[in-house]
Write a protein that binds this DNA or RNA. Structure first.
Lengths: 218, 218
DNA sequence: TGTACATCAGTGAACGCGCGTTCACTGATGTAC
DNA sequence: TGTACATCAGTGAACGCGCGTTCACTGATGTAC
């Protein structure tokens, strides 16, 4: 017995099929080359039916960004569970300092890379179209990026306070951490010869340098 | 009296007009939305004449990347003239260390931002299409990026040796420096509300953190 | 319970448009003799 | 010097195609009475 709710769910399912079709096309042709007809065709509906779900392609694009936001929020939540920042003393050996810093950077990078691998199409769209040609998408992506940077900044602050470590310019660090991992993530998606393991380790090294540079020795 | 040379120059002029037209269209619509006809129209020639210069759009794209390489090589050459790395002693005050590091990062970032401002369309193309949908362009851009990273790595090595400073992971640093400035550059191009001065200073701070982290105190 | 009406996701025909590509052509210039 | 031929950047007509969008329609389901 179908109800109004069932109908809504059916419509939602078709919308999601459109988005999934769009993601697969994006992976090959890029967002800018999407056409309403190709998306509808891939999703198995008539071109005109597209309008029952979105007024135009960009409206679907913005919805895709919203779904990327969900994935990225989950990424940060998952990373937060694993990150720690053991107390660093002024006379600690460099190796010990690095180890403490890597308690942040390794979970951060590894969680991120794993999220990239599981959601490569969505993440590619997100980080690629940040500077793409659709203003609507750019704006949506910048908003989400700002929020992510904010959350990461808070988390870094919390980690510092927890064990009385000190870092300089925390919001700048958060921004740069995201820049570094997204650059590495994009490289991994786009280069078919990329080895995830190598890229992950190189990413961690880069993040380590950044945090070491920000560490204030009292 | 026209010569064979004059003819070649005339052809070259038209090719450059096509590229210029393509860059202007890219700035609005993005590389993926370029069409042979729109480029020819903007350049003021018949659509069919396009084929006298390039076999397809991507062949022109690759030529555009080659021109970006010229600009970026010039950028590094210019930055090299201005960068220095005064000797850092183990017991130097942090402020003095930062000042020495900033003798690298400030000329580097300021030169880069100035190049971005003067060649925004070419640089946008270069850094945007690094992960774009055309494999030909991606490959060309990755080649150039690798070369740039190599040159910057050598230069950092030279700067270190000059005054007996020590940096860890120099090639990783070179790579990350380029990641950071290109991310900032793209943001500057794409955000109409961006203030070049603010972005430059933030970029320098980010680069400083990175180099501080790589500095080996003996 | 039955009947009349409302809602709404999905459809198929039709439109005008810009696209990439082909083709045979033009006309300016250079080259051979 | 003059003449015949070669080269080649640029042209305009024509093609078939996929595009976004409109429109009136269908048919399944929910709602009112």
């Amino acid at each position: 017995m179908a109800s109004r709710n069932d109908l809504k769910k059916q419509k939602e399912k078709t919308s999601q099929a459109l988005i999934q079709a769009a993601l697969e096309l994006c992976a090959n042709e890029g967002y800018a080359s999407l056409s309403l007809r190709s998306v509808a065709r891939k999703a198995g509906i008539a071109p005109t039916s597209f309008y029952r779900h979105f007024r135009e392609i960009d409206e679907m694009g913005v919805e895709m960004v919203a779904q990327a936001k969900v994935v990225l929020d989950a990424f940060l939540a998952q990373a937060q569970k694993k990150m720690s920042f053991p107390a660093i003393k002024n006379n600690d050996a460099p190796a010990k300092t690095v180890k403490s810093i890597e308690s942040i950077t390794r979970p951060f990078a590894e969680t991120f890379i794993s999220v990239i691998e599981k959601n490569s199409q969505l993440m590619h769209l997100f980080f690629q179209e940040k500077t793409g040609s659709s203003e609507a998408l750019r704006d949506a992506i910048f908003d989400v990026t700002d929020q992510l940077t904010g959350v990461l900044t808070e988390e870094l602050n919390r980690l510092c306070q927890e064990n009385k470590n000190n870092l300089n310019d925390i919001s700048l660090i958060a921004e740069t951490m995201l820049t570094i991992v997204s650059a590495c993530g994009l490289e991994m998606i786009v280069r078919e010869d990329a080895k995830p393991k190598t890229i992950t380790e190189r990413t961690i090294l880069k993040l380590n340098l950044l945090l070491q540079g920000a560490l204030i020795h009292e």
